[in-house]
Amino acid sequence: MGSEHSDAVTASGLPRPFLGYGLGLRPDYYEEILNTLPAVDWFEVLSENYMVDGGKPLYYLDRVREHYPMVMHGVSLSIGGTDPLDRDYLQRLKQLAARIEPEWISDHLCWTGVHGYNLHDLMPLPYTQETVRHVADRVSQVQDFLGRQILLENVSSYVSYRHSEMSEWEFFSAVAEAADCLMLFDINNVYVSARNHGFDPEAYLYGVPPERVRQFHLAGHTDYGDYVIDTHDHPIIDAVWELYVKSLQHFGPVSTMIERDDRMPPFNELLQELQQARQLGERVLQAA
């Protein structure tokens, strides 16, 4: 177990770009963001929300982009799916990237549908060597098409498959290595899945290659006692903050953002939560 601060370099040996502390761009806050230009270092946008022909979403996207760096985060790539990759989707993703020139593009290590039907959910994969090869091959196709590396995010899960051959973090790492892609390390998802499956979240944290981690997600969830659901509708809990501190100690500076998708609070509350992430980050990184 290493808790030492690793160097902030990427798999290619180049310094890891650090955007600072960001929030998700959500329609509830469009006007307030443009009117007040808050102290947010960058925004993460949900790619699919802007794959429309026109109207308010694209208008606000362009206006906000004039003031802030952005990254694109998708939910529909279905990188672990068994249907062919959706070329229409990829084309639209590329068009959106050309429009807003994001720092990077991410999606989830999961599948979202089968036989042409879409479940609109982040479905877990079995952790097998065969799945590693399957996913890595598809990531390579996507990276070739987009002409850039992508980030894959670990999802929250509620089931695990009996025929899995490895831990989730071994699987996540093996895919990233085999596909030569980057990682979006969702700290809340690690916590949620650790609770749901009874593993040690720190084992996960110390089990992924730091040089591939490009971004953190923080979020709240709903705790039902026997299980936890990744709802993004509550403030971040202390246990996730603690895991965030350990992640910073282990990975060094990593661009961090807070996801909030439901029960939207006043924007100021999110800014305060982001300030907490910033203060913890600065404290840990200065001490390192």
Binding site: G80, T82, W111, V114, Y117, M123, P126, E130, T131, H134
Partner: peptide, 14 residues
């Protein structure tokens, strides 16, 4: 294509 994975996904979908 991974047939076992497709079967799993089909069963989950069903």
């Amino acid at each position: 294509m991974d047939k076992a994975l497709q079967a799993l996904q089909t069963a989950f979908y069903r």
